[in-house]
Design a protein around this nucleic acid. Sequence first.
DNA 1: CTCAGTGCAAAGGATTTGCATGCCG
DNA 2: CGGCATGCAAATCCTTTGCACTGAG
Lengths: 148, 148
Amino acid sequence: MTADLDAQVAARLQAAGHRFSSSRRELVEVLRQAGQPIRIVDVLDSRPHLAQSSVYRNLAVLEAAGVVRRIVTGDDYAHFELAEALTEHHHHLICAQCGTVSDVTLPAEVEHRLDAALPELAAARGFVLDHHRLDLIGRCERCTTTDR
Amino acid sequence: MTADLDAQVAARLQAAGHRFSSSRRELVEVLRQAGQPIRIVDVLDSRPHLAQSSVYRNLAVLEAAGVVRRIVTGDDYAHFELAEALTEHHHHLICAQCGTVSDVTLPAEVEHRLDAALPELAAARGFVLDHHRLDLIGRCERCTTTDR
DNA sequence: CTCAGTGCAAAGGATTTGCATGCCG
DNA sequence: CGGCATGCAAATCCTTTGCACTGAG
């Protein structure tokens, strides 16, 4: 699994004309371990020896190479996760209070409905559809129990 | 229509303990006229006499009062539109190139599927669902014709 | 050797905030 | 009058950038 992931990442980076440096390897590893979208602060916390600017720069490189996806929620911090090409299509549960983002997968049937309906909806507006994104916004368990 | 909108906005502001000042009236009017989500820069362009800080502040007040919805796309600027309570439930077409946001309505049937599926999906994760948001990301007509 | 990658510090830039003044209720 | 609203300018703070150094190929 991990070996396979490494190979895919290496291939994508190479295709984009970049190296698979140890910092980048670490970033991918942190994201893989996290299993859910995390912020750059979190990355820096778990890998204190990484320079902030390098993390920002490398995540940008990895994003451009299609290895990583940047998630902007409206929370102060952007979140990052492995791109769907390396995982699988999914959506996000976003806590409006603490900003945490976690993954959800729609029932296949619903997803199919969307895939069937969205392209023509976009086309009707002269839009070339690239992808869609569905977020469920609410309050996570921790925030509802801790209350206010 | 407009009179009705005014009344609703006034009521919501009052309920939140705020005044329906002329600046706020103008903001609502700009958003109504726009008919699609716009950025603060656009507001300032069309109403140069409004102070930037007041626009930011008032949009925050209007958002808290449930009159306005802030849309964060990942583009540099946030977009604003009238809240769904004053319009109707809809989603967004986002141009990945120029950042423009426009409204779309899903076929009722698809929307129903979502409404049926999402709550339990969220509940299964200990999440209290507030609302969902579906964005179609692609390239708008202007950007595809102008190309690159 | 060459050039991408790294780290530190400084710059950027949308948004927020402090504070004095204006104005509605 | 009292307190919210407004404007100007300054401060915030996540993110980006400049620049000199390091290291892989």
